[in-house]
Design a protein around this nucleic acid. Sequence first.
RNA 1: UCAUCCGUUGUGUAAUGGGAGCACACAAGACUUUGAUUCUUGUCGUAUAGGUUCGAAUCCUAUCGGAUGAACCA
Length: 561
Amino acid sequence: MSEERVSLNFLEHIIEEDLEKGYQKAQLRFRFPPEPNGYLHIGHASSICLNFGLGLKYGAPVNLRFDDTNPAKEEQEFVDAIKRDVEWLGYQWDTERYASDYFDQLYDWAVLLIEQGKAYIDSQSSEDMAKQKGTPTEAGSESPFRNRSVEENLALFEGMKAGKFEEGTHVLRAKIDMASSNMLMRDPIMYRILHKAHHRTNTDWCIYPMYDWTHGESDYIEQVSHSFCTLEFAMHRELYNWFLDQVYEEGNMRPKQREFARRNLSHTVVSKRKLLQLVEGNVVSSWDDPRMPTISGLRRRGYTPESIRNFADTIGIAKRENLIDVSLLEFHVRDHLNKVAPRVMGVLNPLKIVLTNYPEEQEEWLDAENNPGDEAAGFRKVPFSRELYIEKEDFKEEANRKFFRLKLGGEVRLKNGYIIKAESCTKDTNGNIIEVQCTYDPKSKSGSGSEESLRKVKGTLHWVSIKHALEAEIRLYDRLFTDESPDTHKDKDFMEFVNPDSLEVITGYLEPSLKNARIEDRVQFQRIGYFCVDPDTTSEKIVFNKTVGLRDTWAKITQSS
RNA sequence: UCAUCCGUUGUGUAAUGGGAGCACACAAGACUUUGAUUCUUGUCGUAUAGGUUCGAAUCCUAUCGGAUGAACCA
């Protein structure tokens, strides 16, 4: 037995230390707290995998909590989409919670703070308050309303709740320290007036708690042990703890906020505003366009939940700045699809070949293996006939020895079929090759066991029988941005880096077995890449999205020479 | 130029005072009815300068570099 070296990320170290210090394993509880104001993206996926992954690892419950404190931005539609995406990723939350579940408790606690002289109503404009806030290097100044009496504060707060005031006229502020080096501690706003209907509480409330006042207290109410968020909230920790101090009672779990670095993916943007710009500017068709980094986009692109979880696992979690190459994500989807995707044949760029010694009316149904890595996947039949399509790039009149494909006078194996030899070709008036005449070796049939079938020829091509071919719309995707970090340039707008060729739509010719493919089915077009059936598919027209290409060392060779 | 955080191969991450490891990428080779997959091997790293210590990626100091911080957003 060799000792296994366990490697933990820094958050797991924190949990392990807490466990050693006396936390009970049964007290561990985590949460994933999205705001329902948009669609989840690959960055959220990392956070989901982190929190739910820890839940699985420690056998701890994980709550799905919607941080719904701003009715101006939040909608039920997003709640539903988020739940779907988390489930699709393969995780189960313990309970579904909403910050809005705690509005009553939050209000009561706020009243308590007012009574203790730790919060006050400020009746200035936001501009005046901003002026008094100071700068990171200069202390702020106190509001003229800072020392209102408890009674007056209570009355005003009640009035705010009762809807007696216009938006912007009053706010509730925590009375902390206008000179703190942490700007967030300079009397942060706890409540603002918003005469807006909330997607869950409707018009019950017209004052809504701010993030800082809500988040830690929600963690506390749910008795979350570890509250993990991204680095931009590091400054908020001091406030998080201050608010917690006001309500914490001995004997309860005291939630601990810790921060990790957001994972950045190359060649993409992830901010809601920018994603919206792509949708509204018709750069992409929708939020679930297969080029979008949203979870719904990745799903439509053909990514599997496993591949995304494996990706999140490999990139790990830390506190340093990072830019993860999108090719790592592509590696993981290839890696998973290689194991599970059935192999099929499809020609995307057809060139007609005619087997001159194959009888005109003859057709054969050949055995084809569904997945060479998985015996249980079995076999299917593919039709073979005299006239076939192969890829244009698989034929050259003349080529050197490194070209393992079809050339005049050369032989090649047709996958699952026969060995053929190119004899001649015909061209149109522009000199384009439009047809290749070949002969086939009738004894070389794949799997027949004959001496001829065992012959080694260097190249193997995929193909499709023209008269049996299924026409399909094929959408070929490329990266949406040409720059690896499009939104980090100070002097350039990210839209300048949009790749104009990120989508190419062509007609492909597929083996007829694909007629029964269903939406979201994923297959490998042999020698090309992984594809999945798009929801735009109808009974008349099947649409495939290219998920990712196969690794292509031949492309590298041709490029470098 | 105030506060907080962070600097480990090309990228991401591990090593918590004692082996700089893993994955991807890259390179070479083997196998192959997918130029795929698989397998083998290889190249490359602790920001800099001091200090503490028998011993430092790890602790201390300074320097350099980066990120974050002034929304009635989350």
